[in-house]
Amino acid sequence: MAMLHTVNKSPFERRTLDSCLRHAVKGSAILLIEDGVYAAFKGTVIADKVKAALSDHKVYVLGPDVSARGMDEDNLIPGLEVVDYGGFVDLVVEYDKVQSWL
């Protein structure tokens, strides 16, 4: 049963992403939304952690939240995939259940 994990808090301020990564089993997917998208970029102190997660998980990031924050999709950590709201819905349908790490 593959799960979709969503993370909506900044990794610089909260430990939500860490908790998620600690409990997400191989094959589950992670979707970064709202302030969670700040984890998605190269050159930060968080980037290595997210790169490492890519070996066990597909990692998605919500495009409208990236644009709102002025973050550059060209600067995303390679391997991350951008989805729009429709893609968010598709992921929810594709995976058996969703865990929202608030």
Partner: peptide, 23 residues
């Protein structure tokens, strides 16, 4: 400071999230 630096990040385009861009 901390995540506050993101408040003044260039290029904010908020149409997609339906919130006013106050930058």
């Amino acid at each position: 400071m901390d995540d506050g630096v993101y408040q003044i990040k260039k290029g904010q385009k908020t149409e997609g999230i339906g919130v006013k861009n106050f930058s």
